[in-house]
Nucleic acid binder design. Structure first.
Lengths: 201, 201, 201, 201
DNA sequence: CATGAATGAGAATTCATTCAT
DNA sequence: GATGAATGAATTCTCATTCAT
């Protein structure tokens, strides 16, 4: 008589199902085409049921964005150790872009601006923090020309995001090969940020 | 007795009024809050009247965004002459980002995912082309380490776009001062791309 | 405390209420005057509510016309038994025409030119099939000069339809009394179709 | 300086152009899809211009119907002389149906009911009168069993109309060959209406 | 005579949200 | 916990008609 899944787990599972479906819908159709009705339909449940899990449409979109960011964070955490700081950043850069290209819906969701009234909820906390820690370590190790870890982190992030989102948003554009773009951009940026190698002389 | 404004001029003036009002509406409310009703109301005319000037909502939006990007192109063209290639690129970089921050919704719209009706795809082609010409000139002048103008253009574009769209998408994030970010990113990137200054000594 | 009407019954009842109201509206105003708004208003419900029962205006109209033709079929089926084949056909003929005159808009709609969306094509198939069965029985009984049941059915149908639709389309024309027309036409046609009575003498 | 066409002729020509276009539109799109805007567009003139020729949409539709009927009348007038009354009616019957099939748009227009408020304007005066004259001649010649020319005319008309409009309205129906239907129906009907041939004995 | 601008009403449809059951 | 019925507002868009030019 006792349920296989305890009640809380069942609830959580259903909730994450909703988020997954909504994520797909939102990433695919964009802001305009997203509607609770369609989510409910894909979930095979009544529209009202969604309100048992989320207070409003906006609330659900919050959750979608957060979930997408968590996924991004995990993919950054999984990076293998590297031999040098430079290599490590190059790997992270590549991992970031490739995550976005592999999960364009999630990526789009993560950086969509769900509410016209900007709320402070969606800070890319953990993922950004992870990058900052890496940068700070680099600063401590003296590999960067600048000491301002925050600035360095933000501009690296901006570059990664720029390439990723452009490739996603304009799939039909005659891009140069992705690998070339990723490497060229990360190389140029890191070269510009890193202290020049001591010229052997 | 003859009309002050000839008919065509009056029409053109009204049309650009609509675009201006729509632009403001779209800039204020963004994609989802934008409706022909509100535009008509602000114009003080009937909704149907808008259809005398634009075939559809999408059509009007297209005109709005196009007008914005004409403005970007002009602001890129109007850049004051620079003393060096490096300075020129830095100025362009800054102008680009600042344009995006001044018209966040338009910028976002231009890079939004293509709508189901593919007609409404806004391509900042002209601006990209302008950048490429500048890069090509730089390549000819031998300022870049690489000769591949296309790759260089694309990664510069990606960086500009990345910083712009991040700042737009996450206005509440504790960003470092914009000027710092713009300068740091463009400097680092250009340093990485440019041929190292011949150490004369 | 339990509801008088179970949910399904209530739903079905409401649905058939809608059809009834829509039917009246359509019957009164015809094709062009028919609008969901008016139906909702007469129903005392919101327009959107209609969409809980029918997918679209067309869908509702389809149901309306279908219901009418079910009624035609039933009235053809409910014809009292006749003493002779000839009388039976005359009764059917009359029932058909009178049905059309009682529901002129529905009848017209059923034979209106197919709408751009081909889904909404109303075919009085069943009634036609019923007629064909009767003709076939007549052929087997040897009452017709010809053996071609299909041809006979089609020309009987054409005659019934012709009188019906003309009377509907030109209500202001100085027609002879309906009964006279119905009887005269069916008599002449059946006389022409039936095998001449063996002159016994 | 003097116009090739006198003013009145030019006006009449333009008017009949409008009617032709409207006829085509109305016959093709049916009642729902017909709009003055589309007519004006096909005419290459402004919508307002139509109002210089017709007081209203309804007015134009009146003219369309009348014109269609005139065309029908002319085709009936052009019938070659026949050897017998029976043959003459058979020819007329066939001519009528074939006119409808050759000009389905016109035919549909002629029998469409343009206004929900039935007006007495659309009586198929001339064409119907022509048929009645033929019937009257037949009555005088004693070929019909009945003397009531009006009734005879009306039921012949109904039959012709029925076959014609059914074939037009249901082109996809598996009809027997048209010729067979036309001949069978007219034969049966005329047989029923005509006085039996004096049996030679 | 003809235009094109303008209107206001009305159309179908979708949506987020609420609530009794 | 879940449903499905219901709402009311909002959306885009079309149309017949009028009128100054």
């Amino acid at each position: 008589m006792s349920p296989k899944q305890p009640r809380a787990a069942k609830r959580a599972s259903f909730e994450s199902d909703i988020i997954a479906v909504a994520s797909e819908e939102f990433g695919r159709r964009g802001f305009e085409g997203f509607s609770l009705r369609k989510v409910a339909q894909k979930m095979g449940c009544a529209v009202g049921t969604l309100y048992l899990y989320f207070d409003s449409k906006e609330d659900l979109l919050h959750a979608v964005v957060e979930a997408s960011f968590r996924a991004l964070l995990e993919s950054l955490r999984a990076l293998p150790p590297a031999n040098s700081a430079r290599e490590m950043f190059r790997n992270a850069f590549r991992a970031y872009v490739e995550f976005g290209l592999k999960h364009p819906h999630h990526y789009r969701c993560a950086f969509a601006q769900p509410s016209p009234t900007p709320s402070a909820k969606y800070q890319p906390h953990a993922a950004f923090d992870l990058m900052r820690e890496k940068v700070k370590a680099g600063v401590r190790a003296g590999v960067f020309q600048s000491n301002d870890a925050e600035v360095i982190t933000q501009i690296i992030w901006a570059s990664m995001h720029g390439l990723t989102s452009l490739l996603i948003a304009r799939p039909e554009f005659p891009w140069e090969p992705r690998n070339v773009l990723i490497d060229s951009l990360s190389d140029a940026l890191l070269t510009g940020l890193f202290r020049a190698k001591p010229q052997s002389h």
